[in-house]
């Protein structure tokens, strides 16, 4: 499927997500990398040794959720923009979802933006909780959004477009 549509199935997505107990403890990385390609910046950028690829650079990354602090550096280093950070520790109703964002203009904290799924379909409006960019991120910004828990496996992107 993914090879034809470019969209991972919900089953694939659920498998990559950490268990809900881990999500509810604090921020943690979700890596949507399903294909063996020669690439390893996620593993080499992690200061905590939480992402492992090993000697063969084509291996898929595995994450040690015990070691991941949710620091977000891998999110900005993944050339596939395949990593997001999810944090369920802040609220019973929402998760804080951080995604890489390389479009202009950037949203501002407090804005309501359109939440999209992995096919770019509109889900709901969500609130921007924060926008981070610094030199180390090298023009890959991190936008954190307040996403209702029931949308957590569907949400993956945002659009700032105003639809009349």
């Amino acid at each position: 499927m993914l090879e034809i549509t470019g969209v991972p199935t919900e089953a694939q997505i659920r498998e990559t997500f950490p268990p809900i107990e881990a999500i509810d403890k604090g921020p943690i990385a979700v890596i949507e990398c399903f294909q063996e390609i020669p690439c390893n910046p996620c593993a080499t950028s992690c200061r905590f040794g939480a992402i492992y690829i090993g000697d063969n650079i084509n291996n898929l990354p595995t994450i040690d959720i015990g070691k991941c602090t949710g620091c977000s550096i891998c999110l900005t280093k993944c050339p596939g923009l395949a990593i997001s950070i999810i944090d369920g520790s802040k609220s019973k109703d929402y998760v804080h979802f951080s995604i890489p964002y390389e479009m202009t203009p950037l949203p501002a904290t407090g804005d309501m933006v359109r939440a999209l799924d992995r096919e770019g379909r509109y889900l709901i409006d969500v609130k921007v909780l924060g926008v981070r960019s610094n030199k180390n991120f090298d023009r890959t910004n991190i936008v954190t959004l307040e996403v209702p828990r029931d949308q957590m496996y569907r949400f993956r992107s945002i659009s700032l477009e105003v639809i009349e």
Partner: peptide, 10 residues
């Protein structure tokens, strides 16, 4: 596929 997913979600 990561590049494909990137444009699909837009």
């Amino acid at each position: 596929l990561v590049h494909a997913s990137k444009v699909r979600r837009m």
